[in-house]
Write a protein that binds this DNA or RNA. Structure first.
Lengths: 368, 368
DNA sequence: TTGACTTACAAAACCGGTTTTGTAACACTT
DNA sequence: AAGTGTTACAAAACCGGTTTTGTAAGTCAA
């Protein structure tokens, strides 16, 4: 007589109707060998009693959990990536339509991520994983592939074959970015990137280089800098590149966070972003609209990406071949106000910078 | 011979050692009636075979899922609340220590939230809920209380008894805010709030009023405005309040998003936030540091709050009385640069505003 | 030496579903 | 009329654990 909170079991229903519990199960799973009359009586009892099958019991037999997992790598405080928040939102919405749920876990190191995946797999808590922020050589993908455990990635790896992925054409976006800047009149275009272990960072850098090459502009390695992918990195990156004797008049940044830091650096020097120095980011963060100047950025709708990836994983679980589940989308340039024709040449900028740097000491990058 | 991926079952272990599976279970659950020798042999086999118990099977019998749930209300695009992202991060970290997991779900309406909770409860997918953004009269809390299903809230309701909660002393924070502004020399202090159905919005408004009263300043209802809690609302709120014939020289905003919009409005009018008009937000969003001017704000560490709430829910599940699980924390004012002594009186500000509004038409609030 | 306890484990029941197997009752052939 | 299929369901097995029950062997007291 286990009268636990709200637990109407299949036995209760069966008893109530006077049939075997297997029969109830068959009705609920749309088997055909049930008379119309019985079916109706059972369905009514299910309604009346408010019966809902226990996911646990069902899963035990079926071996499915109706749950997808995502393990978020959280570094030193960079856990609350606003991009990820929207991404997860998109996943959750898509799953809601399919009756699946999302298990969210964080992990603070590469090893921890794998260990967490291992635990979730061994304990059979999830049916598949969504992997984000892919690296060129990604241990998570290696592990899941070896275990033949279903997954979909957001972003590709160095070898984008044999698994399902959704990605943005990063090369094309940054090549376009270069072309755009060039057509605005920028001749020296800088690039603030991140660790080339991260696949998107590497691809965007490649796109930047390809864009220059396509225009016949010589690629100056000194106009490229690699930084931590956060606002501090952007600040430092701008500081580095603008210190060049022939500084760039435009800065292409691998993410909005970097761009925000770069704009901050310009502001502290009294340079106007959007005219004195152009800054372009990537991610389309909503907050970019409220910066001064509003940030020009590449947008890829994190929410849509989340939904897309979730649906792809469902397809994978349904047995679709991963070959047919590889999708490359285009990023869109959202022009706000941090880009524009250069107000002065690189040489003039260098002079202006020299003056300002002598005048006022910098605050340095801020915060923790 | 179900040789499924990585599924070593308890039977495999039992067979391997030559004992009954019940014995293996007893060893793993630290029962005492097992000889040292047998225990060792079983533990070794568990190691060797890499056995990990199936959460599903265990839960079926135990009736626990080792999973907590959070249902995020996502309005019209405001889903990706950066505050929530950090909050979830904090929860996930705390749960990781306890071996629990977090199920994240979104819902787009009050009814949908309840329906989702109902489903998760009926299907027995979670052991308890974390409820955020409490309303003064919150249907979720009514429902969960009626079902006697375990939960903890972040934020109180109109009647904060009978359940476990973690909250910030919103009244105290905003009363302090008023005092701070007054001591800077502000005599007309505006308030941009949100729907008083939201408990934190109502409490912060109350704190604002209490702060004025404590200083003996007459409360002018026209210096209060209620807006949608996002950047657009902040823009509109500033527009409304500054149109007053005796406009406020300082704006206390219920969240950072509102403050960001308010700063935007000032900027478009050519007013300098931090001197011409002081703007203070609430949430301590990291991005506030990179705005122009960097935003002065009350901070409550969303991450810490998430961790605290998660641990409280674990206590609830362990049977601790909810009376002992009610915790009120203090918000801290982070002074950056959007507050300061007023550069002019309310009257002078009114004149300045009249001039600017005649000169240049406003862009209006932007974006979607 | 025998009955009463322990000890250390085997065996079985159970959690709540799904799936397989078995079987009365009826219909349909030949 | 006997054999062969269907139909519609009951009964039982199963998923992989946990918990209860049962019991052989050893220990101890009387």
């Amino acid at each position: 007589m286990s009268r636990l909170r709200g637990s109407v079991t299949i036995d209760d229903v069966a008893r109530h109707v006077g049939v075997a519990k297997g029969t109830v199960s068959r009705v609920l799973n749309n088997y055909t060998d049930i008379s119309d009359d019985t079916r109706k009586r059972i369905l009514k009892a299910v309604q009346d009693l408010g019966y809902q099958p226990s996911a646990t019991a069902r899963n035990l037999k079926r071996g499915r959990q109706d749950t997808l997992g995502i393990v978020i790598p959280v570094g030193h405080g960079n856990g609350a990536d606003p991009f990820l928040a929207q991404f997860i939102d998109g996943i959750a919405r898509a799953l809601d339509e399919s009756g699946l749920d999302l298990l969210v876990t964080t992990a603070h190191s590469r090893e921890h991520v794998i260990a967490t995946m291992k635990r979730l797999i061994a304990r059979r808590k999830v049916d598949g994983f969504i992997v984000t922020r892919t690296e060129v050589d990604d241990p998570r993908i290696a592990y899941l592939t070896e275990q033949t455990f279903p997954f979909v990635t957001h972003g590709r790896t160095g070898d984008p074959t044999g698994y399902a992925w959704f990605d943005i054409d990063n090369e094309a976006a940054f090549a376009d970015g270069v072309r755009h800047l060039y057509s605005l009149g920028h001749e020296r275009i800088g690039f603030i990137g991140g660790s080339p272990d991260l696949n998107f960072a590497r691809q965007r850098r490649d796109g930047y280089r390809q864009g220059l090459e396509a225009l016949g502009v010589r690629h100056d390695p000194e106009l490229e800098t690699l930084q931590a992918i956060n606002e501090k990195g952007g600040f430092a990156g701008a500081e580095t590149l603008l210190a060049h004797k022939a500084p760039p008049t435009a800065l292409l940044c691998v993410t909005d966070a970097l761009a925000i830091g770069a704009v901050q650096f310009c502001r502290e020097l009294g340079l106007k972003a959007g005219s004195d120095v152009t800054v372009i980011g990537y991610d389309g963060l909503p907050v970019g609209e409220y910066l001064d100047p509003p940030l020009t950025t590449f947008s890829q709708s994190a929410q849509e990406a989340g939904g897309r990836v979730a649906r792809m994983l469902i397809d994978v679980l349904d047995g679709k071949p991963s070959r047919s589940l590889q999708e490359l989308a285009k990023a869109k340039l959202i022009r706000r106000a941090s880009d524009g024709a250069p107000s002065m040449t690189s040489a003039a900028l260098a002079n202006a910078l020299r003056d300002r740097l002598n005048q006022q000491p910098l605050s340095g990058s801020k915060g923790e």
